[in-house]
Design a protein around this nucleic acid. Structure first.
Ligand SMILES: [Zn+2]
Ligand SMILES: [Zn+2]
Ligand SMILES: [Zn+2]
Ligand SMILES: [Zn+2]
Lengths: 158, 158
DNA sequence: AGTGATATGTTATATTATTACATCTATGGA
DNA sequence: TCCATAGATGTAATAATATAACATATCACT
């Protein structure tokens, strides 16, 4: 699980990455869906950092390995990865991050640093409770929540 | 202020609209900025319903009155209206709604019905409190929050 | 009226995302 | 093993959203 320390720029990112990729295999096996080589590679590219990546940025990277890749190649992989819950879209950036807690149910908010562009998914269950209660009072039936905070991370705020 | 009843499809929308436009005049006067005729008209178009409107949908409408209007015409008006706080962007839809509480400070979440496309801004201060507390514990300095709930409204859920 | 700041006009282009249809590949049953 | 078929990928085109750059017009103040 992502904890406070992983938001430090000093954290050992290899752990994040390895964890995400192992979890991906498990999740796909459990759900009976195929983590094909394209999909896996796109996930790897996303997970190389905590920076949110745009689809066309990913395309540029992926083209170094497969020069005839097209936008739709990336979008299809992203759609799959999002369906399975391995990747999340950051709506306010039109960009994507790898999920670091894909094995668990999770109710998270995304903290996005506008300086370093790192984006961290942090557990925010109580915020969800709060919003579910509010929904109930409005007789609104929520299906998908988007909670994003733009600002400055601890590494960039001073 | 938006209350529960304004989410009912039966509410009297003329009140919403009139209120929004009067508030717009006040807000602009207070801030010493100019609500020019283009800006005002775009705001009116947005406020004709609670449906989130895309920039190009607005352009189509506005073109009926000014056939040589261009995308940038709309985006400039929207940028102004957003800066002043008269319009909000719904990030998960790339669409815009008029603000119905522009005079007050407000901390709101947006409830979006995926059936009827109506979008309502509802006070959610306690959610903000919650997220601010979480931010503090991460030493994150939040500058802009995006809280959007997609689902089904009371008119569409059954 | 003259001046500077703000707003608008105009053209072009950048960025993000999807549609449509052809072809290939993995997989399970005959 | 071979076939049927569902799912995945290839390829081309285009749709949808948003911004850049620069010229001209208008407003607010002196
Ligand atoms: Zn990491
Ligand atoms: Zn940062
Ligand atoms: Zn109304
Ligand atoms: Zn509805």
């Amino acid at each position: 699980m992502l904890d406070k320390t992983s938001i430090q720029s000093s954290h050992n990112h290899k752990n994040c990455m390895q964890h995400a990729l192992q979890a991906a295999e498990k999740v796909c096996k459990n759900k009976g869906v195929r983590l094909t080589s394209i999909r896996k590679r796109i996930l790897e590219l996303i997970c190389t950092s905590h920076k949110a990546m745009g689809a066309y940025g990913l395309l540029d990277l992926y083209k170094q390995e497969d020069p005839k890749a097209k936008p739709v190649t990336i979008y299809r992989a992203l759609d799959f990865l999002m369906d399975v819950g391995l990747v999340h879209k950051i709506e306010s950036l039109n960009a994507f991050i790898g999920c670091l807690q894909s094995e668990k149910q999770h109710q998270t908010a995304i903290f996005i640093c506008d300086n370093c562009k790192n984006a961290y998914e942090i557990d925010a269950s109580s915020v969800y409770e709060n919003l579910f209660t509010l929904s109930q009072s409005l007789q609104f039936k929520p299906q998908k929540l988007t909670i994003e905070l733009r600002g400055l991370c601890v590494n960039c705020r001073y």
